[in-house]
Design a protein around this nucleic acid. Structure first.
Length: 290
DNA sequence: AATGGTTCCTGGACGC
DNA sequence: TGCGTCCAGGAACCAT
């Protein structure tokens, strides 16, 4: 389940291994990963072929590959089970669920794999981000299709006051707002639960019951837990999440509540519970979270 | 306008 | 051991 720390881990690996390399051949299937392109995978193949990779950027759970001599980028979202795998040598045999494969000039390869096809592979044009990061050290460009996605808490652009006026009267459950990528991006089900636990806030609370200071604490804790996870290479429960070189992350052992129903709370030793909010599992401590 | 529900998909966990 | 059944998850889309 790639959330911000997992996507950032993958991005760093791709940045290190593929920047400056030319794409000499590209193959794609007709997977629904390409559903946002009017011409399916064709637009993606046209974009990447014979261009040099200039780098990888990220906002929230979205990541994009920059290319030479164009203001269009290849935008990826890994969904539930997406992987972008780098290999120092070309993978000759076709592999299951690999929907796009690029061969680079030095003989290395890049494979976009996604069994559940919840992800996206889309061509999009870069535009000016609104709002711009503060302080405005450099102008941030983001893909046009991500214009509605909010900044993530690890970006300079994040400012909880910006969204507060719209949120303060909302009757939505706090957990649902944390997962709303238009409000704040990058937080998925795992880190939402961890941030709520650290903040002592129950996910079923209505947002309007919070003070601005509590909302800021919540976002601050989400940022903190995601930074810690990033330092561990992300969270892996199974083979679904691996970095660009196929290695798992080690943060799962550091989770306080997610997936721990029936186990003791790390703060009060009481038994942790689970409830469904908006179709998502919410793991919490009924003593520590109010 | 704002909010909640439905949908896509398949590997893995579980029960018999 | 092997089969069937069910569930997890993100975000676009639809219904209210």
């Amino acid at each position: 389940m790639p959330e911000l720390p997992e996507v950032e881990t993958i991005r760093q690996g791709l940045e290190a291994h593929t920047t400056g390399k030319e794409v000499i051949s590209a193959n794609a299937d007709d997977s629904r990963l390409f559903r946002n392109n009017s011409s399916g995978s064709e637009a993606v193949l046209n974009l990447v072929s014979n261009r040099t990779i200039t780098g990888w950027e990220r906002r929230g759970k979205f990541m994009w590959m920059g290319l030479s001599d164009t203001d269009e980028v290849l935008v990826t979202h890994l969904g539930m089970s997406g992987q972008v795998l780098y290999d120092s040598h070309e993978k000759a045999s076709p592999q299951k669920h690999v929907h796009l494969q690029l061969t680079l000039a030095d003989g290395s390869s890049l494979r976009f794999k996604d069994p559940r096809t919840f992800g996206h592979l889309t061509v999009s044009k870069l535009i000016q981000a609104q709002p711009q990061p503060q302080p405005r050290t450099q102008r941030r460009l983001i893909p046009e299709i991500l214009a509605h996605i909010g900044p993530d808490p690890l970006e300079g652009a994040w400012d909880s006051n910006v969204s507060w006026e719209k949120l303060r009267s909302s009757t939505r459950k706090v957990k649902m707002v944390l997962l709303d990528q238009q409000v704040v991006s990058g937080i998925g089900n795992i880190y939402a639960d961890e941030a709520l636990f650290r903040s002592g806030i129950h996910g079923l609370r209505e947002l309007r019951s919070l003070e601005l200071a509590q909302w800021e604490t919540l976002i601050g804790n989400a940022a903190a837990v995601m930074r810690e996870a990033l330092a561990q290479g992300g969270t892996s429960f199974d083979a679904q999440y691996v970095d660009a070189e196929g290695n798992p992350g080690y943060f799962a052992r550091s989770l306080d509540v997610y997936g721990r129903k029936g186990q003791p709370c790390v703060k009060c030793a009481g038994m942790l519970s689970r409830v469904v909010i908006g179709g998502r599992s919410h793991f919490y401590c009924s003593t520590c979270q109010r």
